[in-house]
Design a binder for these strands. Structure first.
Lengths: 133, 133
DNA sequence: GCGCAAGGTTTACATCTGTAATCGATGTGA
DNA sequence: TCACATCGATTACAGATGTAAACCTTGCGC
C-alpha cells in the first residue's frame, strides 16, 4: 500500500484540470462568488468568456469540488476543500510518480539542478530547525 | 531570469502524458529496446496490449521524445532526453504553478503536511550540509 | 514458393479538456 | 406589461489521451 493513498487531494478519482484550477484559485481567494464575479477575476487573464467560466463552474460542482449556494436567482460558489488539500495532493502525487515517493529525492533534485536559490536553502534550513528543535 | 530556463524538460509545448511516461521509464531504464521488449516491461503492470505500446511509441517518436533506430526489420527506441530533464521540468512546473515558483514553499508545505518523514528530514538535512559545507 | 508470425502504420473510437454558443426561465426597468 | 438583461443548463465541437483493432509488408520455417 502506498503511503499517500490515505490523503487524496480530492474525491478519489476526481481530478481538477488546469483550467478548472484557475477557477478554484479565484474561489479560494474569496469564496462565495457568482459566476460573473469569478469571471472578473480570471477572464481577462486567461482570455476567457463568461460562458467558459460557467462551464468550468458546472463541471467543478459536478465533480464535487465546489458547492453552489442559491442566492436569489444566481448561485454563489464555494470550494469544498482547501487549497492546501489540493496542493498537498498534487505535490504528493508528483513525489510519488517521479521520485518513488521520496520527498527527500525531490529536494535533492531541486538542489542539484539549481532550482533552489541560496535563499531557498536558507528558508529550508530555518524550516528544519523549526521542525526539530 | 530563472536558473532553470536552460534545461527545458522537453521541447517547449510538447508534453508527455501519463501513459507515455510509463513507456519512457522503461526506455530510460534500458534504452534501445523494441516495442515487444518495452511491452514486456510495462504491459502486465498497466494491463496494456502490445498495440497500445506501439501507439505510444509512435506518438513519442512524433513528439520528438524518442529516436527510432532501425535494426533489421524492427526499430530500437531510445529516449532523446534524460529522465532528469523530464523530472526537473515537471518539478519546476509544479513549483511554478502551485507555489508561485518558490521551491522552499514546496518543501515547507511537504513538511507541514507531514509528507516528510523523519527520515526525509534527515536526508534533507544531510543534503543541506553537503550543499554548503 | 507459401502461409504465418512479427513489425510498423493507419484507422478507430470513447473520454476528457478547453472554449463557447444557444436555450429557456426570470427578474427588471420603462 | 413587455422587451431586455441575466442566470444556470444544455448542447457543441475540436483537439488530446487512452486503448486498441485492422492492415500491409516482409522475413522465415516447411
Amino acid at each position: 500500500m502506498n503511503p499517500s493513498d490515505d490523503i487524496p487531494a480530492f474525491g478519489p478519482g476526481e481530478r481538477i484540470t488546469e483550467a478548472e484550477y484557475a477557477v478554484m484559485e479565484a474561489l479560494w481567494d474569496r469564496p462565495r462568488q457568482t459566476a460573473a464575479e469569478v469571471c472578473e477575476e480570471v477572464c481577462a487573464a486567461r482570455g476567457w468568456s463568461l460562458a467558459t467560466v460557467k462551464t468550468l463552474l458546472s463541471r467543478l460542482v459536478q465533480k464535487g469540488a465546489l458547492a453552489s449556494e442559491p442566492d436569489g436567482r444566481r448561485f454563489l460558489y464555494t470550494p469544498l476543500f482547501a487549497r492546501e488539500a489540493y496542493v498537498g495532493g498534487e505535490s504528493r502525487r508528483l513525489v510519488e510518480r517521479l521520485f518513488g515517493g521520496s520527498a527527500a529525492s525531490l529536494v535533492a533534485h531541486l538542489a542539484e539542478t539549481e532550482a533552489l536559490t541560496a535563499n531557498d536553502l536558507d528558508d529550508i534550513e530555518a524550516l528544519l530547525k523549526e521542525l526539530r528543535p
